[in-house]
Simulated assay, not measured.
Amino acid sequence: METINGLAAGVAHEFNNVLQIIQGYLSFARNQLPPDSEIRRDLDAAMAASDRAADLSRRLLQFARSEFDEGDLTDVNDAIDSLRLLLRPIIGENIRLEFDASTHVPVVASSDATFRQAMLNLCINARDAMPSGGVLTVQAAALSAPSADNLAVGELSPSNYVKISVIDTGEGIPAENLPHIFDLFFSSKSPGKGTGLGLAMVATFVESAGGAIGVTSQPGEGSRFDLYLPVAVDAEGDGIESLDEAGFTAPLLVTP
């Protein structure tokens, strides 16, 4: 995974250098033309395409930098509350959002910003799997020495975890695609709608945090992604119940 991260960062860096030159010339040429010029409209389309390429480059860098930093903590309840506010305007009116998080979910040992981005990626994937509408459910609960027979990423140990689930009632994942959904650049979406980076980033984050991911899906019956993240512990080995207890403050918004 370290090799993949290095490759992704290198590609994104070089790609950005080329894009800056392209966008500079496009902007210069565009500004030399009157607003009603057909050529200017063509240049606008080219600029929009380069903006999409820049977004892809940004996602590559985000993937490459998603390593877990030891000492980072995440308040799961706070992150899910922020997610609730963020999702409503982008999820669509035909999808019902349901949140079921215990009020006593302990703090997890993970990068807060990357956790929020991973959750956003999973929820957007769930939205895209329900073009005709449905129900998107986010759950969180504390577990002791959990077991799971649907693990696709990582392993579980006899420790304390927080299990965060993202469940949709959408199209489901074909059986032949399940072994590949966390592969870098793998996407079953139509061209232009998927980069194959979102789930790869989620897998990298969870593995770096020492966690695991379980996946259950049936075509036509929806999908369930279960993230298992280790509970953060203090110097005495006791679980940390809040960021205040640990002396940390979590950001209030999901990092875009």
Rank of each mutant, 00 (worst) to 15 (best):
S66H: 14
A9W: 01
S82G: 15
L136V: 03
L33A: 12
L120G: 13
S111Q: 08
Q139S: 07
F185S: 15
N150D: 14
H180C: 13
G154W: 10
V135K: 14
E176C: 08
H104W: 11
G237R: 02
S27G: 11
G192Y: 00
G239W: 02
M201A: 02
S157H: 02
S111H: 08
D226M: 07
I22D: 10
F185R: 15
S27F: 11
P106R: 09
R84C: 06
L252M: 10
V76H: 02
E98Q: 13
A232S: 04
F225P: 03
L26I: 11
E221W: 05
D238Y: 11
L178D: 01
G247E: 08
G237A: 00
G237S: 05
A232W: 07
N150W: 06
E70K: 06
V108F: 04
A212R: 14
D69A: 09
D42T: 05
D183F: 10
Q23E: 14
H13R: 08
D44T: 07
A79P: 08
A48H: 14
F205C: 14
K163M: 02
M119T: 00
E207K: 15
D81Y: 02
L61N: 09
A212M: 10
N160G: 05
G10H: 08
V215Y: 06
A142I: 00
S144W: 09
R88K: 09
F15N: 06
R58E: 15
A129R: 10
N150C: 12
V108E: 04
V135L: 14
L86A: 08
S110A: 08
D81E: 08
P34L: 02
L197K: 06
A49C: 00
V233W: 04
L178M: 06
M130K: 01
T103E: 12
